[in-house]
């Protein structure tokens, strides 16, 4: 494997966003790119990352390899990179370590680190293609704000999408709270757009603790996409450049 990222910051942000959810995971490398899939310890949430080969230049992966990496170790090394550094990941065919090289485009500094790899026996889940009842695209910062606000009142949020809009509501010991967003197009500032595509109304309840955790990815993309269907996990997607993505799936809470 030899994969060169124009900005080390991208990988730094991705790992930073998921490191509190998952600890040890395999980075599966093949000629289409670098993928990661991992569940959190309680098996409620699933992280799925895809960094497509096109996100790197150049990208070369001659043989499929799984790099088992402890994310807190990876984060320690990524913190040694400046945000603007160029990052090159390298690994042999049957690697014991992954090699990270940081190059400054402005100076002649070159830093090199090796991280020891781990043997990780990870369950791989098949995620079915889903036609979602509701797909909401909104500013990532807005979603983060709503989750942070509502977690002050309750541990769960009900997300209800109708033709009127999308309503985030919660109830807790001190009282209730709700935030409703309607579809909104801002020609001047398209980054503030809220788009709700609905084939049928849907209402589901989720644990806010996980949603707040997912929102650590807000720095990766201006927009977040929420996809909901009855009785299936919520998909929270942050789209990255070159069709790469960071997706989170969260199992709903279902009342008896």
């Amino acid at each position: 494997l030899e994969a060169r990222l124009e900005q080390a910051n991208l990988l730094k942000k991705v790992v930073d966003a998921i490191k509190d959810l998952v600890q040890d995971c395999n980075f599966d490398c093949n000629d289409s790119g670098i993928a990661l899939q991992a569940m959190d310890n309680s098996h409620v949430a699933l992280v799925s990352m895809m960094l497509k080969a096109e996100s790197f230049s150049p990208f070369r992966c001659d043989r499929n390899i799984a790099l088992g990496i402890n994310l807190s170790s990876l984060m320690k090394v990524l913190r040694c990179a400046q945000n603007e550094d160029i990052l090159t990941l390298k690994a042999d065919d049957a690697p014991d370590v992954v090699n990270l090289v940081f190059e400054s485009s402005e100076s002649d500094r070159l830093s090199e680190y090796d991280i020891k790899l781990m043997d990780i026996d990870q369950e791989h889940l098949g995620i079915p293609e889903t036609e979602y009842s509701a797909t909401i695209s909104m500013p990532a910062a807005e979603f983060q704000r709503i989750c942070r606000d509502l977690i002050a009142l309750s541990e769960s949020v009900a997300i209800e999408a109708t033709k009127e809009g999308v309503k985030f509501s919660c109830s807790g010991d001190i009282g209730n709270g709700a935030v409703t967003l309607r579809s909104h197009t801002n020609v001047e500032k398209p980054e503030l757009n809220v788009d709700i595509a609905l084939s049928e109304p849907v209402a589901l309840t989720f644990s806010l603790k996980y949603l707040v955790n997912f929102c650590k990815a807000s720095g990766l993309s201006g927009t977040v996409k929420l996809c909901l269907s009855s009785e299936v996990p919520l998909l929270v997607e942050y789209t990255l450049a070159s069709n790469s993505y960071l997706r989170f799936y969260l199992a709903p809470k279902i009342g008896d």
């Binding site: 569940m39 889940l125 799936y249 809470k253 009342g255």
Partner: peptide, 14 residues
């Protein structure tokens, strides 16, 4: 957590 589903009950093991 009452009513919290596991993600494994929705996605099949590959």
């Amino acid at each position: 957590q009452s009513g919290q589903k596991s993600i494994k009950s929705f996605f099949q093991k590959r």
